[in-house]
Design a binder for these strands. Structure first.
Lengths: 334, 334
DNA sequence: CTGTTAGCGCTTTCAC
DNA sequence: GTGAAAGCGCTAACAG
């Protein structure tokens, strides 16, 4: 067993068959006798032969690697999602390119172009920041697109989602039930599917609680700590009676926490705060953050599993949305 | 400008030159007349021609993509490092495979094997968990290995480091100066270069402060929240008088914080705690965490820049270690 | 400075 | 069921 890289030819010669028989065998494709297959497999294993993904990619016009594009790898939500996804992929022997779009649509489009050039055929797109039309178009350019938390659907595109609306609905209901009357909402990016669904849940929750939706209480922020802090300034300049804030995600909510402190508001005495995601730090910040919990690793695993299944020719069954769960901590006043 | 993918041949035909002239031009290689080069470039651009990274990889036996391997993408230190690194690479037009080894040496070795199969020629290895001998061997199997925070050096391998020892030395000195007498240390993985340097800094700090090193006060933990919590149990079972703990990194320190609280110790009244990294959450946990700050994005950028420079044939100049900086917050008692 | 000839290691297509 | 031929799109190694 030399240290050299072997090729199909070496294996073919050794097995006394043609190149193609080895190729077919390695790809588990039909057209090879049971006995031949077994022998080829055995010999390949003994020689330590591993097909070259690069050569395969060139010949088949389809790379063996996959891609995942996300807006901000520094947000624990995405890094945990990505970790789960790449781990799932590794378990099935595939490497994945992670592309960070920095919340910028232009970089996101460049990411797709780049992945196509690499002949990547399957992608997990987490929280796209592209307008529906463009995203649908981009997704269609891949053989196996999997969209996480997107409103964009279509033939040939798989969706893996969280029931954002229900989650926020519950959060709003809880706050109203606790007597809060001026519940503000710090929304995420306009093109984000979950941002839209969360806003919908917010409005539905208010309606169910008999409170009229006040546009003044809805602001949009960049989903990071900085964005959360700024949103507080905007909010308080519009309506000083705010007694609760729900933020698009935890990282934003943490910014809200700090912004409110800077503004001298007590939490939760003056203002209750609830985030979304339950990143590990939500439980550790001061005050600890109430949040709409999402099983992030499960979401990442599901998305990558869907992608791998599609690649293997299985049909994708959407399965139920992931159900988020309201976790009450200090920031919402128990 | 059709929507089709063009090949070198199309460009060559259009420009009335040979295949090779186009190839040389696209790679900025010598052997092409100034005028010809300009014309080819112009035509290629007009046609929207982009060389196929896959074909290139096959022909040159060297993929255009790079790799980064790290132990835990869920640790903000690594996700922020990775983000900075992939952003730097994207700026130069290259995609990178991120491989998460889950702190497991066996997965790390598998990662290298897998990257070699993809014909990846350059890798950034952040915080390897492999014994020096093996790591050196693995590194040598790549054209451009860049090791971050590793003790392993060698011809052809680039190192990007943080002055861990100085950072911990300062932390220990501070604690001793504040009157703490039983300073424990929760070390990181045995094979980690920074773990070793940090332990060295700890011992040096004690020595400088005239305190004898007590092996009972040094425990090793898996560098995550869970590991930090457990280390407290181990530590307190050995020596109840501990009045300060320095942890290998912030994520571990946060675990220590929780562990101490669970044990009924006041922070910083009974025990002072200091971490390393200054991940964004260090300032947000309760009590806020004092830490030895590292400029994480800069570290990631440096590593990837070194890799890209090596790839481009430039010589790597180590440059000075990144200097960490002690940041005092509540957990160390001001 | 430029072009020609061989592949890189596999899959595709079409024979048998 | 199996194999031979013809590339995939590019670069290496020579030749001029």
């Amino acid at each position: 067993m030399s240290k050299e890289r072997h090729t199909v030819e070496d294996v073919a010669r050794e097995a006394g068959v043609s190149l193609m028989t080895v190729s077919r065998t390695m790809n588990g494709r039909p057209g090879v006798g049971e006995e031949t297959r077994r022998r080829v497999l055995e010999i390949a294993a003994r020689m330590g032969y591993r097909p070259s993904p690069v050569a395969r990619g060139l010949a088949s016009r389809r790379a063996s690697s996959l891609g995942i594009v996300l807006p901000d790898l520094a947000n624990p939500f995405f890094s945990i999602l990505a970790k789960a996804a790449v781990d799932e992929a590794r378990g099935r022997g595939v490497n994945v390119f992670i592309i960070n779009t920095d919340e910028r649509p232009s970089l996101e489009r460049a990411a797709y172009a780049s992945l196509r050039e690499e002949r990547i055929a399957g992608v997990v797109v987490a929280a796209s920041r592209l307008p529906a039309r463009h995203l649908r178009e981009e997704a269609a350019s891949f053989d196996w697109p999997v969209l996480v938390n997107s409103l964009v659907t279509g033939a040939g595109i798989a969706n893996v989602d969280v029931d954002d609306e229900a989650g926020i609905f519950e959060a709003v209901s809880h706050l109203l039930g606790a007597g809060r009357r001026h519940v503000a909402f710090v929304a995420g990016p306009r093109e984000s599917g979950s941002a839209r669904r969360r806003v919908a849940g917010y409005k539905a929750g208010l309606a169910a609680g008999g409170i009229a939706f006040d546009p003044e209480l809805l602001v949009r922020a960049k989903p990071d700590i900085e964005g959360g802090m700024r949103s507080v300034v905007a909010l308080l300049s519009r309506e000083r009676r705010i007694d609760a804030v729900i933020a698009h995600n935890d990282i934003t909510a943490i910014g809200v926490l700090r912004g409110l402190e800077a503004a001298g508001r007590g939490i939760p005495s003056d203002v209750a705060v609830i985030g979304v995601d339950d990143i590990p730090y939500a439980a550790l910040v001061r005050p600890s953050l109430s949040t709409v919990r999402i099983d992030i690793p499960e979401l990442g695993r599901r998305a990558m599993a869907a992608l791998l299944d599609l690649r293997d020719g299985k049909v994708f069954e959407p399965g139920p949305c992931l159900r988020p769960e309201l976790v009450l901590r200090e920031s919402s006043g128990g």
